[in-house]
Design a protein around this nucleic acid. Structure first.
Lengths: 399, 399
DNA sequence: AGGTTACGTCAACGTCTGTAACAAATTTGC
DNA sequence: GCAAATTTGTTACAGACGTTGACGTAACCT
């Protein structure tokens, strides 16, 4: 099985010719512009990249001609002399389209090169997979039209789904949707062109990564409405399992002798920290349960407060297992948990400090995820546009 | 904190000039020779790399001149025409030195470019850290002398220790050795030059990776005498946590309400699957307990058999957590567990098939680790020589 | 107005790979 | 037994790229 590749480095097992040389240096220069906090001048690019002024000039010309960057007016550097010309990412040109399917909401999102959200739409999820995919296709087309109206061209589309994905296209199973073996990529292709399908927890983590860059490099993003997933970012790169089927935090055993789970195992985290367990009777309807739980907890409801404490402890146990195996320094509580973070952080941190072997030397920070419940759809859009950000040559070759 | 880098790809944030181009293609070509099962000809290299015959010729000339490869006599290809000249890795030239500290054994190992073990020595471990390090320095010098006698030059030294390592040098704590805050890298430097210190579980996994290449790409290698560690390899690359402090499988919670552990938590895997738990009263003396346990199990001792079943189940629970988070398709039982694998595999597999969410689609194979208890010292030596295998330019620049 | 800094352009140079022709070594065919 | 065919490896030349250094222009400051 192949899986979508989110690579930063150019392939290392490919011969390089002279033109790859130019492509590499162009990509390097462009990434400097992407990573710069403010408009950056040619001189600064030359210093930052180690290339010479003439080379930078040529590269900048190509980037300007391709519409990837714009000259953003004089940007003063220091004291005297000709002012530097600031270069910034263009707000027109390539864009990424993200789609997301949650328990009862579909969403679509367009982001431009700068990472700004240019379009965001929601719709209720129809019952069947076919209807939901048709609806997503319609939302995607509308988003593309809205993008075109702002001189944006969608260069890549990613769909987030709550379940493991095979070959970047086939949803093997998504219990909360009632899906099994749905080839979502093939279904959307006629309307939207090639669509990469990926796990929502992974994409949410990518969303938090891109949105926070370059502050966060190593973290795990807990993500979940009813299924609890974990997206793992290490060294600024999303970590996928061998077959892309990782991230099932909800089925990590918290107590191997615990109660049975629908998955066939016993004592799964899902049973302690799932929204249904915190608020029994909560039907699958996203965020309303989280909001309801938040309200009850704020009102001091003792049962809900106790359930939240249990949930946080169980999350802490599962996260301790994760961090003992792959140490990260930050835990982001995302999805519905971002709304409940204030009720969970204390008990999560308590278990982490007890159970993480190196917590004495290297404390783990637990925080709500900045992007919250919409991280997945934004991460989907960002991961689509990120291909251009990492390799602008593909866009230049196209134009 | 920085950590040792095991990188395959050349830095992506560096400008490339013409000479980097040559360096890249040389490295690419050399890796093809490394990965080839049999001697490979220039023309085969051209096809494999995508470079042209003249370019390959130049690169091969450089590699021959640098002593990294040799012409291994005519190797017939097919029918007619000039015969191909086989090229193989030289058995002289650069070599890697590995050192290992276990509970009561020190070991040293030299491997050449081909991955062949050219020198392997053992010694008992002295009590104190200072004595042990002095002893290791002596073993290292002897190994270097033995290497020199066979026209080998040690280009890198790696030390494996049973505990988390900071900055590639400082052993924060190693309970089974009674070490705390020992700067092993600095202690060995005067005698051996720069030494990279690394975790033994990680190095054992690297050893299994290099020894099995290219068969295994994604696996976890359980490694342990008394501490249970996990080395994780994904996509042919060793996975380290953000701060290099991962791999503590022994302190993953199997039952969060279980008995207290020395680490301060409760229900750690260590308590169920540690050698002391399988054979109560087993003093820390490596492999003798494993051998003793194996003997008792073979004799049908019911208590030991029951303990082995409990240990396997607990291992299965912890590994299920790992695989649910980061899916790998293979589990290697290494260290002492390689000797007990036949008693453990069944119960480990039972728990995996129950608890791994995707086990129905993607079964996980559990096997004894081929290199067994010596994987760490061999992995240490291999990781040292692997720097040359990945980037032969460093050796050529030196010579 | 003169000094200062940023930027573009040009030519010469060195290095690399690719293309194309050439030399070497073996098998095949008569 | 000897020449042609075939495959492998090497040499010669052309094209592409970045670097160096120099010159010219533009835009700000004192």
């Amino acid at each position: 099985m192949t899986r979508p590749v989110h690579r930063v480095a150019p392939a290392t097992d490919t011969p390089v010719r002279q033109e790859s040389l130019r492509a590499h240096n162009l990509s390097l220069t462009f990434r400097q512009i992407v990573g710069a906090a403010a408009p950056i001048s040619r001189i600064e690019l030359a210093v930052a990249t180690g290339l010479t002024r003439p080379t930078i000039s040529r590269i900048v010309d190509d980037l300007l001609a391709g519409g990837l960057i714009i000259e953003a007016g004089p940007a003063r550097s220091g004291n005297s002399g000709r002012p530097r010309v600031g270069l910034t990412l263009a707000a027109t040109g390539p864009a990424g389209l993200g789609l997301d399917i949650r328990v009862d909401t579909l969403s679509a999102c367009v982001v431009d090169l700068t990472g700004a959200v240019r379009h965001l739409a929601f719709a209720p999820r129809p019952k069947t997979a076919a209807e939901a995919l048709a609806s997503l296709a319609e939302m995607g087309r509308a988003a593309m039209a809205a993008a075109a109206a702002e001189h944006l061209t969608v260069v890549g589309t990613t769909l987030a789904v709550p379940g493991p994905v095979e070959d970047g296209s086939i949803v093997r199973f998504a219990p909360v949707l009632g899906w099994r073996d749905v080839d979502a990529g093939a279904a959307l292709r006629p309307a939207l062109g090639p669509v990469t399908v990926d796990n929502d927890a992974s994409l949410a983590a990518l969303g938090e990564l891109y949105a926070s860059a370059p502050a966060l490099r190593d973290f795990v993003c807990v993500s979940g409405e009813f299924d609890i997933g974990a997206g793992l970012v290490l060294g600024g790169a999303l970590l996928r399992g061998a077959r892309g089927w990782g991230g099932s935090l909800g089925h990590v055993a918290v107590d191997s002798d615990g109660p049975p789970c629908a998955c066939g195992a016993t004592g799964c985290l899902q049973h302690y920290a799932g929204l249904q367990q915190i608020l029994p009777g909560a039907a699958p309807m996203p965020y309303s349960p989280a909001v309801a739980i938040d309200d009850l907890a704020s009102a001091g409801n003792p049962e809900v407060l106790a359930a939240l404490d249990r949930a946080g402890s169980a999350l802490g146990v599962a996260l301790s297992a994760l961090i003992n195996i792959i140490d990260v320094d930050t835990v982001l509580l995302g999805g519905s948990y971002s709304l409940l973070a204030s009720w969970l952080i204390e008990s999560v941190e308590r278990e982490l400090s007890r159970r993480v072997l190196t917590s004495g030397w290297a404390p783990v920070s637990v925080r709500p995820a900045p992007l919250g419940p919409d991280a997945a759809v934004m991460g989907a859009a960002l991961s689509a546009i990120d291909q251009v950000r990492q390799d602008p040559n593909s866009w230049l070759a196209r134009a």
